[in-house]
């Protein structure tokens, strides 16, 4: 991890557990990363990787009683969000840290107009009268590229298309100019042409406001499009991190390499090089490296030792016992 002084968010050794009748399940198992101002960090993972749990942990939005943050620190501004009071969190949520989800419809209240909902967010955090808040809501809608923003203010969520609803959600999230925007698969339910508009929008706003963005996704293409740097998660752990171009051009961890080979566009011949098996059940994690049962590079010691997250060149981090050998192989392959 590069030690930047301007980190907006720094997560250290985060541990999040789900509490089940059979005992705690480690959904997030010692995850660390940081995001600087004006930077977009992609958090890439498949189902069960813990990516959404991390997003919810950051704002302490996980259901209490069924889950808990068991360790680590979440440093934001002067606060450790793991220790912060509920009152302090309420003031941060929606103001300094905003979050948007895949389900834009469920994030909006069906009985209030678009304008009322955005104005409500503004008035929770700033002393503005109703009329001024409404005017600001209109300006924000215009900023997120909403066609005919004045009219939209008095419309209800069901009157909007999926793409427009997601713009409203983004508008509400940006209403108080957050320093950190957490996006959890915000474009997954959208068509590609609409997805492209939303990704452009988030990047544009970031350039203007300098906010930090944590972008949670399962989609390598989306990471390539929006993230400056990316963290790859597998079974609750960071397995690789690098700036996006080097991560995608030269993945080092066999899991990241497998993901790249699974992409239809990289098919060699008429079949894809799929990763065998499937992601492990968090209740019964494999010993050693969680990826070893699916890994073509695995050796006997991979089943015994959990590899450390090694620091490689240019701030890259790799969790693999054999990462040096694999780096050499990859290099040779690139040169020949």
């Amino acid at each position: 991890m590069t030690d930047r002084h301007d980190a907006v968010l720094r997560v250290e050794e985060l541990q999040t557990q789900f509490l089940t009748a059979q005992g705690p399940v480690h959904a997030v198992n010692g995850v660390s990363f940081e995001i600087g101002a004006g930077e977009t960090l992609g958090l890439l993972g498949e189902s069960g990787s813990g990516k959404s749990t991390i997003g919810l942990s950051l704002l302490r939005l996980l259901p209490p009683g069924r889950s808990r943050i068991a360790g680590g620190r979440i440093l934001f501004g002067g606060d450790d969000l793991v220790q912060a009071s509920e009152e302090r969190l309420r003031r941060l949520r929606g103001k300094d840290i905003a979050m948007i989800f895949q389900e834009s419809l469920s994030a909006l209240n069906p009985v209030y107009t678009v304008g009322e909902q955005i104005a409500e967010v503004i008035r929770q955090h700033e002393r503005l009268d109703r009329r001024a808040a409404f005017r600001r809501a209109g300006e924000i809608l215009e900023m997120v590229g909403m066609p005919d923003p004045g009219r939209r203010l008095s419309e209800y969520p069901h009157e909007l298309s999926g793409g427009m609803r997601q713009r409203v959600v983004i508008a509400a999230a940006l209403a108080c100019q957050p320093k950190l925007l957490i996006c959890d698969e915000p474009t997954t339910a959208l068509d590609v042409t609409v997805q492209a508009q939303i990704l452009d929008l988030i990047s544009d706003i970031q350039r203007r406001t300098g906010m930090a963005v944590l972008f949670i996704t399962h989609d390598l293409g989306v990471v390539a499009e929006i993230a400056h740097r990316a963290v790859v998660l597998y079974a609750g752990r960071v397995v690789e991190e690098a700036d996006t171009p080097s991560l995608l051009a030269q993945p080092r961890m066999p899991y990241t390499q497998g993901l790249m080979r699974s992409l239809p566009q990289f098919a060699e011949g008429r079949r894809l090089a799929a990763i065998p098996g499937f992601v492990p059940n968090p209740r019964s994690m494999p010993s050693g490296c969680a990826f070893h049962p699916r890994c073509g590079e695995a050796r006997p010691d991979c089943a015994e030792t959990v590899p450390a997250l090694a620091e490689a060149e240019n701030g890259r981090r790799v969790r693999c016992l054999r990462w040096r050998e694999i780096a050499h192989q990859t290099e040779r392959r690139v040169r020949t």
């Binding site: 590609v192 042409t193 997805q195 492209a196 990704l199 990047s203 989609d219 390598l220 293409g221 989306v222 990471v223 390539a224 499009e225 929006i226 996006t244 171009p245 995608l248 051009a249 790249m260 992409l263 566009q265």
Partner: peptide
């Protein structure tokens, strides 16, 4: 085609 995000072409 131009809207679909593609690994390797990025931004």
């Amino acid at each position: 085609l131009s809207a679909a995000p593609i690994v390797g072409e990025g931004r």
